[in-house]
Nucleic acid binder design. Sequence first.
DNA 1: CTCCCCTCGC
DNA 2: CTGCGAGGGGAGA
Length: 433
Amino acid sequence: MKKNVIPKEGVYYIYSIYQQILPELLVRDLTKLFYDIEMPLIPCLYRMEKRGIKIDIQFFKQLTKELEKEIFSLQKEIYQLSGIVFNLNSPKQLAEVLFDRLKLPIPKGKERSTASEVLIELLPYSPIIEKILRYRELNKVLTTYLKPFPEMCDENQRLHTYFDQTKTSTGRLASLSPNLQNIPVRGELGQKIRKGFISEEGYLLISADYSQIELRILAHITEDENLIDVFLQDKDIHTTTAAKIFKVKEEEVKEDMRRFAKMVNYGLIYGMSDYGLAESLRLKKEEAKEFMENYLNSFPKVKEWREEVIRKAKEEGYTKTLFGRPRYFPALLSPNKTLYEQAKRQAINAPIQGSAADIIKKAMVEVDRKLIENRFNIGLILTIHDELLFEIEKERIEEAKEIIKETMENIYPLKVPLKVNIGIGKNWQEAHS
DNA sequence: CTCCCCTCGC
DNA sequence: CTGCGAGGGGAGA
Ligand SMILES: [Mg+2]
Ligand SMILES: [Mg+2]
């Protein structure tokens, strides 16, 4: 709920809007979604925004100081190595330095670009590249997180985001001003930044993260026996998938095989084709095709479902999530092949991503209600798509943990269990399990 | 102001 | 030719 969005005069129209949307809700069978999920979510989100999350301002400022020192010397070294002073933040100028002035090659299969993916390929050609990559990493965290956040805090060193309930096409929430759904987590620097998000004195943070919620939803929707089996036995989905793709025993699955399977699993959720898979993994077409076939034979209903969801979306014009949330796809009638193919991928993804959003929203309403009912002092403070973050008084941590886990895992029973991993700590890094 | 490039998260 | 977002900053209007 962003500040000042409702003008005084606007309130006048709410009843007339209600009169218009009620019949619309009824004919589209959306009353449950509206009254059981989205409406109760509004006060819940408002409380989360009001509670905010505490950051260690001194820690942010100290880290800023250290990284600014490093970034300044990086900048100097980059200008030295390139023999020219230019604006490092300008991809256009940087491309001119790298590809025209220093005559570095454009990797085959890639466009002329300074994206990190391209720069990594250029690492062997010049010592300037690693410095640019590090500069980018530091500049990103400094300008997006470390420098702005201390300025945005309230008098209690707490940051308050806004959750936008209407922004996304799938039903997810969006977080803005600041966005607290894209706080760095990967790598040493990400872990360090997360240590700056802390609990109040006498409190701890609890992170509750749905394990593989989208793949569990895929298992539920497709009713694929093998996929369901993996989750009923609580096996590692990526390891199991790797074993099936490569036709080896699960004990023989190596780390890179598991990583590959993970990409395949997510690729399927995102509507990826075998061509796209081959491309992203730089595989020979035949290999990718064989792995893809092994996958589809292992989880046959996934392929059937992907075709069925597209067929239905063409016929009816929309897809639906578990809770009946529609997403419309006019582009499925487009003569433009690019738009058409894109719409097909979106139509595969929307029911999965959107159903995950349905489930976590329902869990939020329910957990928030229970924690308030039981007189917890702070409670739910953030949602990051499949994770809920809570701030709870130390003495009642175990009590809260039980309520949270039990509520989230049983909020909407599927044909496979929903599993929630809980972590506890005095900062987000410790709590994020 | 908008568009684009780039990079952070799930 | 893998989905959904936010946001910093450059470039050009
Ligand atoms: Mg998770
Ligand atoms: Mg997560």
